[in-house]
Amino acid sequence: MTASLGKDLVGLEPLSAEQIQLILDTAEPFKEVSERPIKKVPALRGKTIVNLFFEASTRTRISFEFAEKRLSADTVNVAAAGSSVSKGETLVDTARNLEAMRIDMVVIRHGASGAAQFLGQRIRSNVINAGDGKHEHPTQGLLDMLTLRDRFKRLRGLKVAICGDILHSRVARSNIWGLTKLGAEVGVCGPASLLPRNVHQLGVTILPRIEDAIQWADALNILRLQLERMQSGFLPSLREYNRVFGVTSERLSKAPKDLLILHPGPMNRGVEIDSDVADGPHSVILPQVTNGVAIRMAVLYLLAGGSPDWAGQGGGVDG
């Protein structure tokens, strides 16, 4: 059995179940590295990684940076002002400049869907998508899956409801691909104005009301509601959203079982999730953050080489 991730990680859609499994399994030993007194292993010593963030993101950037540093890579953070063409240098020029500096890997977050793939096709370095537009956020999907697997010890047959703005969510897409490939059942729940038109064709169950999701699911992955959605006419108000779709302890009390609560953050407390749920006994929001570093270490480690060498499990050749 061998599996390779290839050169880039642009999303979970193009990956096989085996490849996703490989990343999750590789993340397990990396969890322990962050628990060591010296949280650093020399695996990526001498590798140069650029964190190219065209969109502000404290959480994802820090998580990647910790992952890189704990693997001993040299990192540079580039916070580019904007993605639009009016801002000057095009993405392709940025790519060529990075290439000329002989970097090994690029972690890119960009407001345009497809930006990571675009970059990956134009440079020799490994490219890791840290979120591109409304397309995918693969490492978030993977860390959600790892957190679910930690708690349930399995993904196959698990029912996960993704709640909120599915239409504009790259987290939702990565979760849908990753979970369905590993045999979990995925439901999507949100106002119909925030569900993509053909989403049922992705193999998910549509749950029209939050009460339906709570009845159906083993775990809820509650997405952040972007405030811009009001201005662009998708929703009337935050207040009404909370009243109709908010995950509250009162609603959860009607669930047939305890539901695991995930949220990719940052949270709007009192909008999509109430504080007593976010801070409650079934919330794994902080373990998600911890797992984020392990997943990113696993991805960086795997992409820095080719396919894993399973021969190590054979006989004692070495010394």
Binding site: G114, G133, K134, H135, P196, R197, N198, Q201, L202
Partner: peptide, 15 residues
Amino acid sequence: HEGLVSTRLGLKGIP
């Protein structure tokens, strides 16, 4: 076009 492909690619669709 707004359809399955735009949903998958995360691109805003034109219905």
